[in-house]
Amino acid sequence: MLSLPLSWYLMLSATLFVMGALGLLLRRNAIVAFMCVEVMLNAVNLTFIAFSKYHQDYTGQVFVFMVIAVAAAEAGIGLAMIVNMFRHKHSVQVDEATLLRH
């Protein structure tokens, strides 16, 4: 057990992170775009946990705990915003929110 190189885990998390970022960029549905933020956060958590084990240090794991709490709060606010926007426009397409420009 436990013989895999650290870099494998880092590469996995990097892949997930970039996938999340691209999803945020490319998906027009606000809820899905927001889900992609969660994907990014998960990639970060994976990095923290891998390093935590590498350093045999709890800090990383505690950080993950905090990130999950923050993600919960962000999810609450973010979904509330999406609901609020839906009430105004009857749509959650990100690219239709263009009242503010220039």
Partner: peptide, 13 residues
């Protein structure tokens, strides 16, 4: 509503 949403999405990113 729109400003808040945009601000939020950018901030979360």
């Amino acid at each position: 509503a729109e400003a808040g949403f945009k601000y939020f999405l950018m901030g979360a990113f």
